[in-house]
């Protein structure tokens, strides 16, 4: 693995040079929100930010995606693909929790049995530059409880770590190493940088304030589909999509046709287990008719079904759902409460 040092004041120059060559998506302040946006001339990415309001999953799994178009003529139906393939791009400044979410999403969209060409195309062409959390940004962060780490390189092609005067840049994957070629001459990092990173890593881990028994509740979930506990968590839920839409790992989708005259397109859109239409069948029957069942689904999907299928918890501990739930339904509390049952 190549390890280089980037002077702090040189970083923006490098990013702006790269953004002349390919789209660079980075955290920027947009009115009240910090969001991933494409950097345009003169824009500088935020490097001292906490985390973005929305998760970066929409780069590979957009909220709305056209899968194909069709045109009906008198004789036939003509099918065509979508506008063209994805372009090479850089996703800059991704927090380690969010970078790790891509590894989890890969398990769904890029598995042996099912390959999702829409997702894979964009995923393969995007270089992910992560920014380690030397200082975990929120007291609601709980990445270490669900298999992550504030300085983890999982999911990153390049990992930047703030060392004070410099960033330690680690070029982890071949994609990352190719990016190094475009970054110009950078001095190599020596062993002392490794030492320092190790120290930072240990202190960052200690700074994580929230801990949940994420793995420990699995046996309870296995046995308690009908437990009265499920009656207690959904009551205040507004059934809005805030938690699932801001979540880096939620990936349920719906497919529908939008037709105009004789032309149409088939689109894939985000779905949410919080919506009453979720798993509604054509007959009108819904196996999850109330918010209670839908909340159970959310918990089960993250802490049981995903573990059964892929041996990982479908949560990276970013804490967005905790911070932005309008009625303060706190997944940390729910998991902790379950562990006490």
């Amino acid at each position: 693995m190549e390890k280089r040092l980037i002077k702090k004041d040189a970083l923006n120059g490098i990013i702006s040079k790269l953004s002349g060559e390919m789209p660079v998506y980075a955290p920027v302040k947009d009115e009240d929100n910090v969001l991933f946006k494409v950097l345009e001339e003169g824009m500088e990415p935020l490097v001292a930010y906490s985390n973005t309001r929305n998760a970066p999953k929409n780069f590979f799994f957009p909220q709305t995606e056209t899968m194909m178009r069709y045109m009906r003529t008198e004789r036939e139906i003509k099918l065509s693909g979508e506008d063209g393939e994805a372009r090479e791009a850089i996703l800059f400044g991704v927090r380690p929790c969010d970078a790790r979410s891509f590894i989890l999403l890969d398990k769904v969209f890029d598995q042996e049995k099912y390959k999702d060409p829409y997702y894979i195309d964009k995923r393969e062409k995007t270089i992910i530059v992560s920014l380690a959390c030397v200082q975990p940004p929120y007291s609601t962060c709980f990445c270490t409880s669900v298999g992550g780490h504030p300085m983890s390189e999982e999911g990153a092609d390049v990992l930047l770590t703030d060392m004070g005067d410099n960033y330690l840049a680690e070029f982890i994957t071949p994609k990352g190493e190719k990016l190094l070629e475009r970054m110009g001459d950078l001095p190599a990092a020596d062993g002392s940088a490794d030492e320092k990173k190790k120290e930072l890593s240990e202190s960052a881990e200690k700074e994580i304030k929230s801990h949940i028994p994420g793995k420990e509740i699995k046996p309870w979930l296995d046995d308690n589909f009908e437990h009265p506990f499920w009656d207690t968590i959904h009551q205040s839920c507004l059934a809005c999509g805030t938690c699932t839409y801001l979540c880096p790992t939620c990936h349920c989708f719906d497919i529908s046709d939008e037709v105009k005259g004789s032309d149409g397109k088939r689109i894939r859109t985000w779905d949410s287990c919080m919506y009453w239409l979720f798993t509604q069948e054509t007959s009108g029957h819904n196996p999850r008719p109330s918010q209670k069942q839908r909340w159970r689904q959310r918990l089960m999907h993250k802490f049981k079904y995903f573990v059964d299928n892929f041996d990982e918890i479908a949560c990276v501990g970013c804490g967005r759902c905790v911070r932005y739930c309008p009625v303060n339904i706190d997944i940390r509390k729910i998991v902790t409460d379950i562990s006490k049952l």
């Binding site: 929305n54 507004l238 059934a239 809005c240 999509g241 805030t242 839409y245 949410s272 309008p326």
Partner: peptide, 9 residues
């Protein structure tokens, strides 16, 4: 983002 939080609240 069409999460419908406004409507549902």
């Amino acid at each position: 983002i069409r999460c419908y939080a406004c409507r549902n609240a």
